[in-house]
Amino acid sequence: MEHQSSGSGDDDRSRKLRQKRIGDQLRRLYDEVTEEAVPVEFLNLLEQADKSKNQK
C-alpha cells in the first residue's frame, strides 16, 4: 500500500461513500412517509368510489 499515489483512489472511495449516504438518506425521507399511518380519508374515499359504482 503506497499512500502517496492513492489520492485519486481515496477520492473515489469517499465519493462512493458520500453517494451511499445520500442514497440512504433519500430512502429515509421516502420511508418516513410510507411508514406513516394512512389517513382514514384515503380508504373512505376508495370505499365510497367502490360503492357508488354499484349504484349506477
Binding site: T34, E36, V38, F42, L43, L46
Partner: peptide, 10 residues
C-alpha cells in the same frame, strides 16, 4: 391499490 397508498403519498 389500497396497499399502494403509502407509496402514492411518498
Amino acid at each position: 391499490l389500497a396497499g399502494l397508498i403509502p407509496h402514492l403519498r411518498a
